[in-house]
Simulated assay, not measured.
Amino acid sequence: MPTVTGPRVVHTHGDRITVAAPATGVELLSYVYAPEAAWEAPKPYIHPLRTLAGDVVTGYRPSDHRWHKGLQLTASHLSGANLWGGNSYVHGEGYLELPERVGSMAHVAFDEVAARDDRAVIAERLTWHPHGGDLWADEERRIEVHDVEPESGSWALTWTSVITNRRREPLRFGSPTTAGRELAGYTGLFWRGPRAFRGGRIIGPDAEGPGLMGEQAPWLAFSGEHDGADGHATLVFAHAPGNDHLGARGAHPAHWFVRNEPFAAVAPSWAFYDELELPPGESLTRRYRIVVADGVWGRAEIAEYLAAHPW
């Protein structure tokens, strides 16, 4: 049986929450909720994200996209607003500087910040706003750190978001691809890897490589090699069964946005090819698991881990 070690939580009020592995003191993540630059569509995010060995596996404000911040929930095209940050894509004109489109996701309160025997919990309420400040949506977010296993060199993070439309008309979730740009379907949960992970290995259950862009699968993994430290790390991104990522029960299907050039990025997109429409008063629920592991994990190793750690 694996050795399970419970995490520890420190809350710096008004700024961030850090979660550390008690056996080593390694800070596994920092959840930052202090607001930042308006142009970058301020929103809470996780950075740094680390392996149990202490190696960082997220990037922060890279020179190519200052609004890329570790692991964060985004909405690149939302009923004409940009809750992603930076320039906005306009079909036929490319990316334009349109500050009047850039909105925000604002921290409201924490319902729970706690450490238990086997996990840490961050439960937060947020509000979503276009540039003008109107209330467009409420979000209930729950981030859990669990299954800290030194023997396998891995730990897991589960991210659950419930977004409720507070407008009197539908919220339309889109992406640059739904707006006309090919293979740019990013929106929803988004991970930006460190610069060293450029050219990293991408695998899914039945295929591998950047060709997984726009494809569907229950999980996708990205392995990269560190700068400044010997070795590699693997991140496994998995859908909860309730997400119905294939749309088999009538739900909106999800497709992977993934690339390893010119930078490392993964997003289980909510609206890769088609817009997702959320009627007034209704809620969208999405749940994901991210396994952070030291070393390069293969397809069989990932499948074995996921089978041993059911939802």
Rank of each mutant, 00 (worst) to 15 (best):
L284A: 07
H232F: 13
A34I: 14
V162C: 10
L98R: 15
A179M: 08
G6W: 04
L212F: 07
T5N: 10
V266K: 04
T3M: 13
G231V: 06
H11Q: 03
E277W: 12
Y31I: 05
I17M: 07
L246V: 02
G209E: 05
V292R: 04
W136S: 06
N243T: 01
W67E: 10
V57D: 02
H255I: 00
T177Y: 02
T178P: 04
A156K: 01
L183K: 11
L78Y: 13
V9R: 03
G247C: 05
L49V: 03
H47L: 12
L246F: 13
I143F: 01
L276S: 01
E182R: 12
N82F: 13
A217P: 00
Y31G: 01
P35K: 10
R287V: 11
Y288P: 00
A293F: 01
R166M: 12
T160I: 02
A75H: 14
H245S: 05
N260I: 09
V145N: 02
L135V: 11
S88Y: 13
A75D: 07
R172V: 15
G70F: 09
R101E: 09
H226V: 06
H146T: 10
R181K: 15
A137Q: 07
G228A: 10
P279T: 04
P62M: 09
G14A: 08
H107Q: 06
E225V: 12
H239M: 09
G133V: 11
G25I: 03
D227N: 08
A109P: 00
T160W: 03
H129G: 06
G133T: 11
L246C: 08
E261T: 06
I290M: 11
W270C: 09
T58C: 10
H107D: 03
Y186N: 03
L52G: 06
T285M: 08
A229R: 15
L29R: 07
G180S: 07
A265Q: 10
E27M: 12
I163S: 08
E208Y: 02
T51S: 15
L52N: 05
L246Q: 11
P7L: 02
E112P: 03
R249N: 14
F110H: 10
G200V: 02
A307L: 07
P194Q: 09
P218D: 07
A41I: 12
K43Q: 15
R119G: 01
R289N: 00
V108C: 07
V162T: 14
P2E: 11
G59V: 08
L49S: 02
P310I: 02
L183I: 00
E100S: 13
V102P: 05
L284K: 04
N82W: 13
V291A: 10
G209D: 03
R259N: 01
G132Q: 14
L98I: 12
D244I: 08
L278P: 02
V19M: 01
G133I: 10
R8K: 10
G224E: 04
P194M: 05
R166V: 04
E169A: 14
R259P: 02
